[in-house]
Amino acid sequence: MHIPDGYLSPATVVATYAVVAPLWVYGFKKLKASLDEETLPLIGALSAMSFVIMMFNIPIPGGTSGHAVGAALISILFNPWIGFISVSLVLLIQAVVFGDGGISTLAANALSMAFVGSFVGYYSFMMCKKYRAAPFFAGWIALVSSSVLTSIFLGIQPIFWTLDGKPLYFPFGLKVTFVALVGSHMLFFGVVEGIFTALVYSFIKKRQKVVVA
């Protein structure tokens, strides 16, 4: 889901930065309010976990691969604004240090994987908190929602930006992109994200209750 440089038209790049900029400003204010010596090891470890889980590329039928993101987990365990900023910083490091995802497309990637992932994960968890499957469902729907937004960013490119009938940027249309991206995230990577979210959540939360009792 890391959109590389050159895949989105300049207009899309400007629009995504315009949308994400105020969200980043507000998110950094939230981070400022909660980042101290006590929370740093927590926020750092959760962000590191997001970075590491994205390195687990999972091969699927059809010759492609994908990975979980971990935004839902940070949001459930800590706070969705911290999830959004943490995953945004992970995406920045991936783009600058590892060439994974573009700089011009950082805003688009942050909106899909970080913002949508964090908030959809958080609110769907809150809504079905009383069910045991809540962490799994939150992780699954968070990643699937992220893939919906990514497929829209990519799929609109050949509709609006062509030259002499040839696409200038990402060439495949909405339908193909939606089926390929959202489908694979519903069936495979979203399930992995759900299992990851549920396992880590229960490992951290349930045992904590036992210790307290």
Binding site: P4, D5, G6, V96, G99, G102, W161, Y169, P171
Partner: peptide, 13 residues
């Protein structure tokens, strides 16, 4: 696609 061909990317270490 031209945009992809001409994309400037950073030299990631």
């Amino acid at each position: 696609p031209k945009g992809i061909q001409n994309a400037k990317s950073l030299n990631a270490p």
